[in-house]
Amino acid sequence: MSLDDLYQSIILDHNRRPRNQGPLEGADREVHGHNPLCGDQVTIRLKMDGTTITDVRFEGSGCAISRASASMMTSAVKGRTTAQALTLFDNFHELVTGAPPAGTKLDGNAGTPGMSNASGESTDVKMPRELAAFAGVARFPLRVKCASMAWHALREALVG
């Protein structure tokens, strides 16, 4: 296992200059994520227009992996629908753990072109290429929680 797989330059860049970091006035939803093992914390705030995420920002403290992940997650889901964001959650989870999340798939086929969920909403969304930088996390099992903390908080904000 190589450190360069984990600390890719785009991750280090997002750690140093996080996007969408700070408070969000008038947020519709707010969820706090916490990793009691290492003390990392993140708060995700969303503004929604119907099922569309019109704005998303995060605050918190944590390691480079958790900070970069929160930064890139917010960039990836802004402007997406809830269904698309949940598909991205599934895809990201699979990317960093090497396995699809148990019982969280949307109608089974997240990521397959043309799929929609029970309410007819499109779940189809292309994974932003930069998120692939987190593939290296799968080789560092101790760091998976760092990478996924902000995503879990997002999921909780969307589905409760």
Partner: peptide, 26 residues
């Protein structure tokens, strides 16, 4: 600019085991 958790991972790559965290002393 380097979180303790990242330090521990980077050191671990060289076989150096240190603790990073709140040390059960929040």
């Amino acid at each position: 600019d380097v979180h303790p958790h990242d330090l521990a991972t980077i050191l671990d790559a060289d076989g150096v085991c240190i603790r990073a965290g709140h040390h059960c002393a929040q």
